[in-house]
């Protein structure tokens, strides 16, 4: 078993993107833009008809809504190493991961709108997206999505494939038992899993230094004898670079790894969260990873005005098509409310 001391990257080190092909970086940028464009559109549609005031159960998109703006570097950087044959389990904030993994935007959006053409025919909602075509799933229970990834990895290995499973959740999940049970089992049986912790500093309103006994969850990898790394900046190039050997290790049958990314929750825990507890809420946009990456790629000659506009236009076209599709899909017939309990 490979044991490796946890390490961390920081902005002081050489930029990991410098060794990457320009096209690969352009793809990362486009993926992040698509994720953000999607969340902005869901934000618009979600709030369009919640009034007067704010009624969470009202409107075309009812219920809790956890949007992922700011966390795009994790999704883009990790998923770039995966194919649709690999599995991802996500948590309650899943859209960026679903998009980056290639879940069909139309079916996903129809599910968020609670329509019959949705991934779950309106039974799941935005925290319960299941796409067998890309082996994507999520769970609304913090940390409890980790164990299923072990089973997918187990099945992939039993079938003698090199497919991997990626389990993603926030830093709050790393304090829950399911996380630790999953790491122990995956390490014990050398399962092809990559664990990814999205540290966005906040467990709803509780800052990570009031919830977590260690500065880096990557050090917890040591307890299970597996490689662990924390990416300190919310930098897609760095995430991409850190995830590469972890996915490769899993594919090679050498076992699991743990990646933590210090990312950013640009918006509230859920829509409607006024974030009064958050001292940085006025200037958080300054750390928005997408403009920062855009500038870096412009400086490197990878991006120009035309490519930026093209990325935005492509994303808008895809997202608005998905929104239109969702709105045109029928609402489920109430007479089918008890369907699908059993196969």
């Amino acid at each position: 078993m490979t044991t490796q001391a946890p390490s961390s990257s920081s902005s002081g080190a050489a930029s990991p993107g410098q060794s990457m092909e320009p096209q690969a970086r352009l793809d990362l940028y486009r993926t992040m833009v698509l994720c953000r464009t999607y969340e902005e559109a869901i934000l618009r549609e979600y709030h369009a008809d919640k009034g007067p005031g704010f009624d969470i159960g009202k409107g075309l998109i009812p219920g809790e809504m956890h949007l992922s703006a700011g966390q795009e570097p994790v999704a883009a950087g990790v998923c770039a190493h995966l194919t649709a044959d690999d599995a991802i389990t996500a948590a309650h904030r899943p859209h960026h991961l679903a998009i980056a993994h290639g879940v069909d935007l139309r079916a996903m959006t129809a599910e968020i709108f609670g329509r019959v053409d949705g991934l779950g025919k309106g039974r799941g909602g935005h925290m319960h997206l299941f796409d067998p075509a890309t082996h994507f799933s999520c769970s609304g229970i913090v940390a409890e999505g980790f164990p299923a990834a072990l089973g997918q990895a187990f099945a992939f290995r039993r079938r003698k494939t090199d497919r991997v499973a990626v389990a993603v959740a926030g830093e709050g999940a790393a304090n829950a038992g399911a996380f630790h049970e999953a790491l122990n089992l995956a390490a014990l049986w050398a399962l092809p899993v990559v664990f990814v912790v999205e540290d966005n500093d906040w467990g709803i309103s509780v800052p990570r230094d009031l919830s977590t006994a260690v500065d880096s969850n990557a050090v917890r990898a040591t307890a299970y004898g597996i490689p662990g790394e924390r990416v300190e900046d919310n930098d897609v190039d760095a995430v991409h670079e850190a995830a590469r050997p972890m996915v490769a290790r899993a594919r090679a049958g050498e076992g699991p790894s743990l990646l933590e990314v210090h990312t950013l929750r640009l918006w509230g825990h859920f829509e409607g969260d006024a974030q009064g507890y958050r001292p940085d809420r006025e200037k958080v946009h300054e750390d928005d990873p997408i403009p920062i990456y855009e500038k870096r790629l412009r400086d490197a000659g990878v991006l120009d005005d035309e490519l930026v506009q093209q990325a935005a236009a492509d994303a808008t076209t895809k997202v608005e098509d998905a929104i239109e599709f969702a709105k045109a899909s029928a609402v489920p017939d109430p007479s089918t409310a008890t369907d699908y309990v059993f196969a």
């Binding site: 072990l150 089973g151 122990n184």
Partner: peptide, 25 residues
């Protein structure tokens, strides 16, 4: 490989069973 002793880790191994079942086992 098919009759598998587990650690005392029910959340972990029941969840593993679920994921394996989702993949057709």
């Amino acid at each position: 490989g098919r009759i598998i002793d587990t650690p005392i880790s029910e959340t972990g191994f029941i969840g593993l069973g679920i994921g394996a079942a989702v993949e057709g086992m």
